[in-house]
Design a protein around this nucleic acid. Structure first.
Length: 503
RNA sequence: GGUCUCGUGGCCGAGUGGCUAGGCAGAGCUCUGCAAAAGCUUCUACAGCAGUUCGAAUCUGCUCGAGACCUCCA
């Protein structure tokens, strides 16, 4: 068995993954800012780290997966004024800030369930950890790497950079930052332009505010993740994840803060997923192409030709390696939808085939087609290697698809039932379940589990069978065509059976 | 302007020195009362130019093009 290798953004190379404590993994992933409804952008990192989490569990690790909810403090620049996103929106919607945050947190959780993402082990909120954040800021001041101005606290990046490799993660050079950082509000308080806020004094109209040693205010952009990762995973932990856009300044600043407080780089492996683009352009407010997840699922967005189910989106994301950009378009989504349907139907078929074969039919090693048997076994085993090579879900799916014709042919008779040994069939079923459901986290989207409906379907199929046996094709076609109009596809199987799917 | 990434067939996307990923779409055939589904076969590639090499989509250089980050962002 080969070892798990991950691409570490911090060293820019693929490394063998060795957890700090054998058998245990601590993973921190930057979660959403709940100042608005979750959009397509939230799908990529949450699904990426979900399959990473699932895979680590599959490998037998005990994983503590921490994903924060940012419900306070982030700034948004709109025109000249810098305002707190959450408090501003709260005024507009006439809600308590916490009411607003709760609303969007609930919507985020709803979307995560749609995607079949597992819950993190701990989901801490920024507002719930003000005390820890203040404590951390005090330590940084005591260590001499932060200074207080008018009730705000700033991190002294220049001093830090003289001692530590500031910019290592994101590939920044401090001198370049000096020249290129553009003007922002409040710059005049800072000693150097690249310094960042640890704590901001709240202006009187600001609703979200907490008491601190420096007066009433709210925490800076980056301190929450340092405080909460330290609290729940320790001063050094295994994996820190997030979107690539967070590398600078967010993760770079986190490293600086934690390095001063805890005297070490917090995480050993930094994993960053790439971005989603829409028709080749980055998704973002500035481009006016942000699609909310609720809009994806219903198709109600000018850019969408139809609704796309959560599993279609999940499958689409899985078809790409997580470190590549992924371009959304109607054509690509529709292709994913069809592909997933094909894969899922083959998987359903496989489960039935293996159940039919039973356990005791013949010797487990008997195969009428050793070459095919070997090929299937090899393609199954290969999936382990693909996944261990930096979580290559794209290649795993390719192999699963390679096996789809084999499954369909076993059913259709193009391949003899005894071509594969019972042991290989069992193995195939186990791998399909492990990968499709447990690791990739896909699930069926059946819409027809209704008992009465299936009873009616049986009846219609029965009537149609009678009609066909009498060569009464006008009746049989009428049944099929009218069902088709309702979105139910009848398929006459070779063996005389009839199956149906919901279009 | 600085830093970096990337350019693969009609579309989406793996791969990264030799052995043609995969999905969707297209074509032909088989099966079929007809369909659908399925199976088999199959056409479109590696931005351009030059170099390294027995051999490059894969390495090097240049040109062109696209994108990201530097500012909240997933």
């Amino acid at each position: 068995m080969s070892q798990l290798k991950v691409h570490n953004s911090y060293t820019r190379q693929k490394e063998v993954f060795t957890p700090l404590t054998a058998g245990h993994v601590g993973m921190y992933v930057c979660g959403p800012t709940v100042s608005g409804e979750s959009h397509l952008g939230h799908a990529r990192p949450t699904i990426t780290f979900d399959f990473i989490y699932r895979y680590l569990l599959h490998l037998g690790y005990k994983v503590r997966y921490v994903r924060n909810i940012t419900d306070a403090g982030h700034f948004e620049e709109e025109g000249r004024e810098a305002e707190d996103k959450i408090s501003k929106k709260a005024v507009l919607e006439k809600l308590e800030p916490m009411e607003l945050v709760q609303k969007y947190t609930n919507l985020f959780h709803w979307a995560m369930r749609q995607f079949n993402n597992l819950n993190p082990s701990i989901e801490p909120t920024a507002t719930g950890h003000i005390v820890e954040q203040i404590g951390m800021i005090e330590t940084i001041i005591r260590e001499g790497y932060a200074y207080v101005v008018n009730g705000s606290v700033y991190f002294d990046v220049k001093k830090y950079a003289a001692q530590y490799p500031y910019g290592k993660l994101s590939g920044r050079v401090l001198d370049d930052l000096l020249e290129t950082t553009r003007d922002l509000e409040g710059q005049e308080e800072k000693r150097n332009r690249q310094d960042f806020a640890l704590w901001k004094a709240a202006p009187p109209e600001h609703i979200m505010r907490w008491q601190s040693p420096w007066g009433e205010g709210f925490p800076g952009w980056h301190i929450e993740c340092s405080a909460m990762s330290t609290k729940y995973l320790g001063t050094e932990f295994d994996i820190h994840g997030g979107g690539m856009d967070l590398m600078f300044p967010h993760h770079e600043s986190e490293i600086a803060q934690s390095t001063i407080c805890n005297h070490r780089v917090p995480a050993r492996y930094w994993i960053h997923n790439n971005m989603i683009t829409i028709n080749g352009k980055k998704m973002g407010k500035a481009y006016g192409n942000q699609i909310r997840l609720s809009e994806m699922f219903t198709g109600k967005h000018p850019l969408l030709q139809q609704a796309y189910s959560p599993m279609t989106i999940r499958f689409f994301i899985l078809q790409t390696h997580y470190r590549s950009t992924l371009d959304f378009s109607n054509e690509a989504l529709q292709a994913a939808e069809k592909g997933l349907k094909r894969l899922w139907e083959a998987y359903d078929l496989l489960k039935k085939l293996v159940a039919d074969e039973g356990e005791g039919n013949g010797s487990p090693a008997t195969t009428a087609d050793p070459a095919l048997d070997d090929k299937v076994t090899k393609q199954l085993r290969e999936m382990d290697e693909f996944m261990k090579d930096d979580f290559n879900t794209a290649k795993v799916l390719a192999n699963l698809f390679e096996l789809v014709p084999v499954i369909n042919s076993l059913k259709g008779g193009q391949i003899r039932r005894d071509a594969l040994s019972p042991a290989t069939l069992q193995l195939m079923k186990r791998y399909f379940t492990d990968y499709i459901e447990n690791i990739l986290g896909l699930k069926g989207e059946s819409t027809g589990d209704d008992q009465k409906l299936s009873g009616v379907m049986e009846l219609l199929i029965d009537i149609r069978r009678d009609a066909r046996s009498k060569k009464d094709y006008s009746t049989s076609d009428k049944i099929r065509n009218q069902l088709l109009q309702l979105g139910i596809v009848l398929k006459d199987e070779k063996d005389g059976g009839v199956s149906y799917t919901f279009a």
